[in-house]
């Protein structure tokens, strides 16, 4: 079997983002970038399935500018076999990304597509589900346990109420939660080997899909700062305020 794993380059999760003064977005110059954290879980799970012998090939794909290739190299360094870089110098929203991924799926014909559950930059949580719908495949989102069977997968999903188990037929789309696994570290020799693995190049706008953004970002601003409230004199006053004024107890 074959897995396509999609990885995205985002501002590193430790970096405190800074909103631009003109409201056009956030500063990204000289800011440390990394692979979107749950995408690392997607890669790790693919590699585990390959190690179990059931999967023969892992193809890692990213969409973005030239530097986005770093994320594919990282996936190659921990066990993906080859990479695809779909070049685009501009932001594409999840709908467009899903359309591009559909093209890649049609070309690569994988049995499964693994993605992170959500990107930590735009926080959309859409791409995997959209891709599944476009392919008319089943999906398992927020996956925290994956069991691969012959023609299906049994997947435990993290939902608000607790855990849900579903079985999806292959081919299928899986979006991965941070609790799915602990991504491994790349070793130095594997990073070097990864430099020699092939990365196919494609250009987003040449793929024949409509990737025009439909949602226009009017402005980005810092969240309003919370103001200090009042100090209460004692516990009795606190309880009375909570009960009668804030009405939360």
């Amino acid at each position: 079997m074959k897995i396509l794993v999609a990885v995205k380059r985002v501002i590193d999760y430790n970096v405190q983002i800074r909103v631009k003064e003109d409201g056009s977005g956030v500063h990204t110059d000289n800011v440390k970038m990394s692979t979107n954290p749950p995408d690392d879980n997607a890669t790790e799970e693919s590699v585990k399935l390959k190690e179990s012998g059931k999967v023969k090939e892992i193809v890692a794909v990213t969409i973005g500018d030239d530097k986005a290739q770093e994320t594919v190299r990282k996936a190659l360094a921990v066990g993906a076999d080859r990479g695809i870089h779909v070049k685009s110098d501009t932001y594409i929203e999840p709908l467009g990304i899903a359309k591009i991924l559909k093209k890649v799926v049609e070309k690569e014909k994988p049995d499964m597509v693994f993605l992170g559950k959500q990107a930590i930059d735009d926080d959309c949580n859409q791409t995997g589900q959209m891709l599944a719908a476009m392919l008319n495949w089943p999906q398992a989102t927020f996956s925290s346990k994956v069991t691969l069977k012959d023609k299906s997968m049994e997947i435990v999903r993290e939902i608000d109420e607790g855990l849900e188990t579903v079985e999806v037929n292959l081919p299928a789309v899986v979006t991965c939660d941070l609790r799915l696994n602990e991504p491994r570290y790349a070793s130095l020799p594997n990073i070097m080997k990864a430099k020699k693995k092939p990365i196919d190049q494609m250009v987003a706008k040449d793929l024949g899909v409509d990737i025009t953004n439909r949602v226009q970002q009017l402005k980005v601003e810092e969240p309003p700062k919370r103001k200090a409230g009042i100090k209460v004199a004692n516990v009795a006053e606190l309880v009375s305020k909570l009960k009668n004024e804030a009405k939360v107890i």
Binding site: I120, D123, E221
Partner: peptide, 14 residues
Amino acid sequence: PIYAGNAFATVKSN
């Protein structure tokens, strides 16, 4: 909210 609530985006859907 974007960036885990560290910024708010105003968006218009066309």
